[in-house]
Design a protein around this nucleic acid. Structure first.
Lengths: 371, 371
DNA sequence: GAGGTCAACTGTATCGTTGCAGTTTTTTGG
DNA sequence: CCAAAAAACTGCAACGATACAGTTGACCTC
């Protein structure tokens, strides 16, 4: 546009570089400062270092490492060789500043869902997948008393990550709505019911509850009850549906137990269940949606002098097999949370890579044979 | 140096900014691109945005927000007001690139130490402390089969974090040596024995083992054994010392049990302990250094028809109180791992702030009354 | 041999921030 | 009333990487 020919470039000497020896350029110190990326040993190599070593331009080196089509094959080979040799690793801050790409996955965690050590295996599972990638895992916590939206907003507003993993989803989850609206890559651990497609991984809680009821019925139990997830979370519905459907299918009775849910403290659960056991309506079969909760149930059961496997049966979903060791009479069905971590990580990465959400939805659990 | 007066500055029009309306500068699009940080709504505010809004220079805004001494009080107030108003948050990549400060704490985790959910509460504890700071928590995993030094080297070489938290320390820990040598801020969860001062937080395993033995002795137990940590870790020695010293002090007998340690699988521990129970030398008191391990011990004990609290007693260190619920006959002593997370996080932050290592060493556990 | 095409390479500007070295204005001292 | 000093503010360059818009030279084509 605008200005005539003389305006832009074409000085006789390009200011950058100009390492032609003997040329009457600037002063010595200035030159050495700019030209040689590092005489010393332990400075971290940058593109400039490689450019200097290969005699190429910084741009060329950058493109060569990216395998761009307009760089010669031999040049690429040379650059890669030198890069490997000096142990070049792109400066994350540089990339991030220029491109906005953070190479970070943010795991948004409720600090209190931690009571029963679910975090641990999920972190491990995610880490295992990310280890093979340039991605880092950042834990973004929030206290559940506060707004669950806050951490998500933070990531979105500050561009702190390329992808987000959230759990404890609700049927109408504002976090999902927000990220979908902003077209931000994420996966949820748990489904939603908003009529919007997004990546998720979920445990088949409906299948679990159904199978649990069936198991109890097969043992002759007829008066069943459920220790269920908190009502505002999606998987409350799933578990309820599975339970209720099975109860209908098998024609058995249910005893309501709504005073507490698996988010309550063990003490509360125990107290509430003891109360139930002292009431007129005593169940002979219990489905528990949480391994920790089951411990409280067991305490209540034993405190009232009953024996599991005899007076009543308990089927529990568990994250690990402690219960199997300590109370083999409790029937357990394992939820593989580490596997969930794998799936979640793979899904965000795929989403970031542009794969459509519909293809990134999975449910794991029992074989669905029995549903 | 070199060139005469005309060289450096003093063009009539400064190229940057020049938002004087009506001045005959460049073309419209170029100007709008540079002058107005954003007409649109949702662009993230930067220093430039605030500079534009306040009419100040970018440098001034930066310094004002840093509360530098050469900025006027009123100016600072104005800048802060606008910054708050527009929700300014410094771009981490910019800061990091310029200053090298990452605002990241790296938690270096062995992926397999995870068997018994220690990670969860430690992550929570660290997060709780970091939440009040600009720091993020990044999980840097390694598989224990591989070099434990690798992740530390990575952080050091790439400057991925401002501070590191490691666990599973060894008496001569190469990671500690490396970070000390590079003068890099870190804390260890567990002590070392290298004669070098560094920040640490540790559980008082010696005190635990001593108290455990005392408890057993008080119950009349005389033939004691220890399920101990793996020999290469520092706390193996601590626990051993506490155990051995108490055994000496109280004049009781010990039964060797070195076939397995708490890092072995539950199956292995159970098998090994059953073997011991079937041998001639049967203990009547057991100290267990791990909650998970205790479960395996219990299984072995019960499989051989013995009763805890009667034929023998078990004292176990535990991370949570499941055992207390399910096997109240087992005597438990709780290790508060979340608290460890707090201490570790506070220590790295203090170290980063320049506090001397000697002041950042703590041991928690039982009151040391009994040692 | 002028003009065009293509392959291979390169300089410049930029992301947002801060260290540095100023510049301008006001105040102070003599 | 002028020089010097202090106070308040500012532009430039740089951190490392990449998008973009060239530049260079070899090779073709007519």
């Amino acid at each position: 546009m605008a200005g005539a020919e003389g305006q832009a470039n074409m000085d006789e000497t390009k200011r950058t570089g100009s390492p032609i020896p003997g040329a009457p350029v600037a002063a010595a110190p200035a030159a050495s400062l700019n030209a040689e990326p590092s005489l010393a040993a332990n400075i971290r190599p940058t593109l400039k270092t490689i450019a200097f070593m290969t005699g190429l331009g910084i741009t060329t080196v950058s493109r060569a490492l990216k395998d761009a089509p307009d760089i010669g094959a031999e040049t690429k080979a040379r650059v890669r060789l030198v890069a490997r040799q000096v142990g070049y690793q792109p400066n994350r801050a540089g990339v991030r500043l220029r491109t906005g790409k953070t190479n970070v996955i943010s795991l948004v965690l409720s600090l209190e869902e931690e009571i029963m050590g679910l975090t641990s295996p999920i972190v491990v599972g995610i880490s295992e997948v990310l280890a093979a990638t340039p991605y880092h895992l950042v834990v973004t916590p929030y206290s559940p008393s506060r707004d669950a939206l806050a951490p998500v907003r933070y990531v979105l507003d500050t561009g702190a990550a390329d992808g987000v993993i959230i759990s404890r989803t609700e049927p109408k989850d504002p976090r999902v709505a927000l990220m979908l609206e902003r077209n931000f890559p994420f996966v949820t651990h748990g489904r939603t019911e908003m009529g919007l497609a997004h990546p998720y991984h979920d445990y088949d809680n409906e299948g679990f509850a159904y199978a649990a009821v069936r198991t109890l019925v097969e043992r002759g139990r007829r008066r069943l009850t459920l220790l269920q997830p908190p009502p505002h979370l999606t998987f409350h519905r799933h578990m309820r549906h599975g339970f209720d459907r099975a109860v209908r299918d098998f024609g058995v009775e249910t005893i309501p137990f709504d005073a507490v849910d698996i988010d309550h403290s063990l003490i509360d659960i125990r107290t509430a269940f003891e109360t139930l056991l002292h009431s007129g309506a005593v169940p002979d079969g219990i489905v528990s949606g949480s391994g920790a909760g089951t411990i409280a149930l067991i305490a209540a059961i034993e405190a009232t002098g009953r024996t599991i496997g005899q007076d009543l049966d308990v089927v529990s979903k568990v994250p690990s097999d402690f219960l199997g060791w300590l109370r083999p009479e409790v029937i357990t069905m394992k939820e593989d949370i580490r596997h969930a971590g794998h799936e979640l990580a793979k899904a965000v990465l795929a989403r970031i890579a542009g794969q459509p959400p519909e293809t990134l939805q999975s449910v794991s659990g029992l074989d669905r044979q029995d549903v």
